[in-house]
Amino acid sequence: MIGNVICQDKVDSGFLPGEGQELSHQNREFLWRLFVEIGKCWKNVKWDSSNLKSSWIDLIKAKTEFAPSYTGEYINATYVVQELIDMYGEKDAFHKLFLDNGIPSGPPTTRLAHAKKYVIDEFIKMQVLASGFKHFGGPNSNYHGYVKGSRYTLMPEVREFIESIEESK
């Protein structure tokens, strides 16, 4: 497993406590940077991730302002990722974290595993549904969780099956 004393620190597999805590500005900036790295790793944003920020902010807000609070998990993730950056340098840190982290399967029992399950994995899900899915496969127009929005006047709702009149008889 990657990382050192922070990443490999053993913790309970239950939710890290977060009630009563708040994310600092620095925490948020760091978490956003972590999110942006997802798009860089999988190259699945068209220009940059800024168009996804309002969805990301909505996720963070919902996860920290309502019980059970994710604040503890988010703060944990900032320390975990910082240790990886300190150890491996920024580029390799994110590569290892996303693609080669060595976390064993099963409930998360280390700080690294917590960060992966509750922060990174959920950020990935959000990133994919907010438009990251568009970069895989064909011009699929819709995905579970994707909100079409203003595009629905200019672009099709989904990839439609169009058959000829002869076929339809």
């Binding site: 800024s50 168009n51 996804l52 920020k53 309002s54 969805s55 902010i57 909100v147 929005g149 203003s150």
Partner: peptide, 11 residues
């Protein structure tokens, strides 16, 4: 970008 919105009805 922080207080801006993208997605539905906002390109």
């Amino acid at each position: 970008p922080d207080n801006q919105v993208s997605g539905p009805l906002s390109w």
